[in-house]
Design a protein around this nucleic acid. Structure first.
Length: 332
DNA sequence: CTTCCACCGGAACCGTGGGAAA
DNA sequence: TTTCCCACGGTTCCGGTGGAAG
């Protein structure tokens, strides 16, 4: 059934991006592809699965094709949420050999190295709201040859964790907003992927629409559903994806998307997450106690609070109640 | 009303390890 | 080479907070 597995992967950026023409134009203009040729710092916002990442990657690729004097770096701040981690990620993604060292005084070193670049550098921070230390935004802003692109689900969520100095900077950024895909657009996207990725006749149009409906505007989820459905059919030697198959894989698709955050957790954070997941809702003190039982070399409680805060920022857990009745739970 | 309790989170501090200057 | 410096991840200390108990 599967003809081209790559087209079914969620990270795959298609050569033609559909239903994002306006956003592509706006981003291209911001990044120097407009009539003025000016590159401007930009913030990209929109709900998850609205195509922010794909569109940005697409525009970056076009930009690199069109101009030789521009370098780009793209980093997903999930898993690189420290200043140095994010900066090292930018270097790794560009063609420059990146010093991988996550320690030492790498931050200033990396910033200076960026400053000394001859070319213009477009730095993209995906999931920027997850950044632990927003100072890196300010540092990048201070470099004349660097253009920054921040990607975040929510404009206000990003700003709220920045100090006023950085807030001021971000407010000067160009703002490109993405709306959620409609069902028809999502169905169209799925059809295009299926045409490239699957043997013809593997999926009926009605089933595509059913998938789009299940994904509720989230293209990442839609494509993951398509991939898992195709895989299940292959495993079971079925030659057509039916709505039953879609029903079977929807939950797995959801948890696969959630797991991309969980994978990046440290062992200690994962223990905390497992306890919360197992208990559903748990008192802070009980959480600490259960953690201490499971961890071979437990961290101080203050450190756990820091971990829990960063996990909450990533939307993995929720904190409820206050004062003495603090509880942790999985998001609703 | 006051006191107590359980927990939060800021601030100051520490050991580490690698880059940069001497 | 040695010495200095600095960010990071972590810890300790402690004042703050809001509901519960007296």
């Amino acid at each position: 059934m599967i003809q081209n597995g790559r087209a079914l992967r969620q990270q795959h950026v298609p050569s033609e991006l559909v239903h994002r023409e306006g956003e592509v134009d706006a981003l291209t203009a911001s990044l120097g592809g407009g009539p003025s040729g000016m590159t401007e710092n930009t913030i990209v916002t929109g709900p998850s699965g609205a195509g922010k990442t794909s569109t940005t990657r697409y525009v970056l690729r076009k930009l690199e094709d069109a101009r030789l004097d521009v370098e780009t770096g793209f980093v997903d701040c999930i898993g690189a949420n420290s200043s140095t981690g994010a900066l090292a990620g930018l270097f790794r993604d560009s063609d420059r050999s990146a010093p991988l060292d996550p320690r030492a005084n790498a931050r200033t070193v990396l910033i200076n190295r960026l400053r000394e670049l001859d070319d213009e550098f477009v730095a993209v921070l995906d999931e920027a709201d997850v950044l632990e230390d927003k100072q890196v935004i300010h540092a990048l802003y201070g470099l004349p040859n660097v253009t920054t692109v921040l990607i975040s689900v929510n404009y206000d969520d990003l700003l709220i964790n920045c100090d006023t100095r950085i807030q001021k900077r971000i407010r000067t950024f160009q703002h490109v907003e993405f709306d959620q895909y409609g069902d028809a657009q999502l169905a169209d996207i799925l059809t295009k992927r299926a045409n490239v990725g699957l043997v013809p006749g593997s999926i009926a149009e009605d089933t595509i629409w059913y998938m789009a409906d299940q994904a509720a505007g989230d293209a990442r989820l839609a494509i993951t559903i398509l991939r898992l459905a195709a895989k299940q059919c292959t495993d079971r030697r079925q030659d057509e994806i039916t709505t039953d198959v879609v029903d079977d894989v929807v939950e797995n698709a959801r948890s696969e998307i959630a797991s991309r955050y969980i994978e990046k957790l440290s062992t200690h954070q994962r223990i905390l997450y497992e306890v919360i997941k197992q208990e559903g809702t748990i008192q802070a003190g009980d959480l600490y106690a259960q953690y201490r039982e499971r961890a071979s070399d437990p961290m101080a409680e203050r450190t756990l609070r820091s971990y829990l805060n960063s996990m909450e920022r990533e939307g993995l857990i929720e904190q409820q109640g206050g004062g003495r009745y603090t509880e942790y739970a999985l998001p609703a």
